[in-house]
Design a binder for these strands. Structure first.
Lengths: 242, 242
DNA sequence: CGACAAGTTGATGTTACTCAAAAGTGGTGG
DNA sequence: CCACCACTTTTGAGTAACATCAACTTGTCG
């Protein structure tokens, strides 16, 4: 009686998020849970997916933060985007044996291989596809940010994005969320210098829009922050997205 | 005897490029060729894939140029990337009914629906996947360009990219290739103003690196142009230039 | 406590933007 | 063929945004 209806055995927060993207059957849930058993642990500030040569197959980030990055010959660095728990990485579409850029852990991370999606109408395949679409959305958003927003707007927009993503993963409490990164990392994400990021953050704090202290960010006035970033309300884009 | 070995019936240049990405069987070649019969024609400067609501399914750009674009509320515009003959668009990964941004034609274009890829080890599916990976590569490259390259470097890098892509499609002759766009479009691609683009183009011309006239671009000194974009130490490249 | 990383501040420099107008370009119709 | 139009490219002068350089302060962790 009871045996049949144990509903979700998934305990890992990251997997909850991933499994929420599409309807998964019990078998797929199990596959996810199994995969999470074979997790690998890595310290912070390590390359977890070397650029140039691919670690075969798709992986799931279970815990911690990571980022895609590209280094220029003269030392300049551009961070392409962040990976949060529940995000997929690696497994660059088949045919390419080249990882396009490297993935670094920012904090200690736990990863596991992503269970293979079966042929046909597979819930997992759909979840992966949607995850990919979301990735694409944020990648394009990053382009707009870098190309057409001012420094202050970039920071505002990016903070809202981080909040939005962490909320979706259950990692934010209201308007406060962890942000375990230095101003230099932010600078390399937003195409600025760390000095300028610092000054802009002060502007946000002075005006009561947001504050960042000790690895934690708080959005104090979402309204005005949004109007700064010119971004439509997040719920509009996201709800339509999923 | 002869009937069996008619090799490739594909005549459309755009399809040649697409079919070169993976090994297609005769059946798939035919499917492509069939699809190209049902082409639609659109004038320049039209929205061919409205943002917000998706025209169902994946499409192939057969002729002409198009671009992905996002408009901000105050009129600013960021071009995310270009679509050249042989490129795929639309058909945002299944599950999302939202095109993340709009696609506009820049010149008159011809498009056709992309034949569905079958399950399993399908050559078409692989070609589509590889095409997607290539797209991703250029998208990340755009981020690096906007985030960490100077105006001159952005233009140099972008010109090389255009040359590379058009060569791959057989649309460039040596170092000369069509570039049917205004300096304002370039500006909105590279996160600059058209005035500044104009000045930087003059710099390139004055130094014999590249020239753009009347919808045609010529790369005059690929070596130095690459070294500019490829980004060795900034002072080195700069002193050589001005 | 000492050392090292991160954050903060000030002064100065440079890149790219803004505004405005002139000079080219191509297409259209008289 | 010319005159006209709209659009694009080019030029100049002044300015704003962000970078650079260098020091100083704060925090953290052994």
């Amino acid at each position: 009686m009871v045996a049949d209806l144990k509903p979700t055995r998934i305990t890992e927060p990251a997997l909850l998020r991933l499994s929420s993207l599409a309807a998964l059957d019990a078998c797929e849930m199990d596959a996810l849970d199994q995969a999470a058993q074979r997790r690998s642990l890595l310290p912070g500030h390590r390359e977890i997916l070397p650029g140039g040569e691919a670690r075969r197959g798709r992986h799931i980030l279970l815990r911690g933060w990571a980022y895609r990055v590209r280094l220029l010959a003269d030392g300049r660095r551009q961070i392409l985007g962040f990976l949060l728990p529940g995000d997929l990485f690696g497994g660059d579409r088949q045919g390419s044996h080249v990882a396009l850029n490297s993935v670094m852990s920012m904090t200690p991370v736990e990863t596991c291989p992503a269970p293979a999606a079966n042929q046909g109408d597979d819930g997992l395949a759909e979840a992966y596809a949607i995850s990919g679409t979301i990735d694409e959305y944020y990648t394009y958003r990053q382009i707009v940010r870098l190309g057409r927003l001012s420094a202050l707007e970039r920071i505002a927009d990016w903070l809202l994005e981080m909040h939005e993503r962490l909320s979706a993963n259950g990692l934010a409490e209201n308007s406060t969320f962890p942000l375990p990164l230095t101003q230099e990392i932010m600078a390399d994400t937003l195409g600025l210098t760390s000095v300028h990021v610092n000054r802009m953050l002060q502007t946000l704090r002075r005006n009561g829009l947001a504050k960042l202290t000790g690895g934690t960010a708080t959005i104090l006035d979402k309204e005005r922050l949004s109007s700064l970033a010119d971004v439509r309300p997040a719920h509009y884009t996201r709800s339509e997205l999923i």
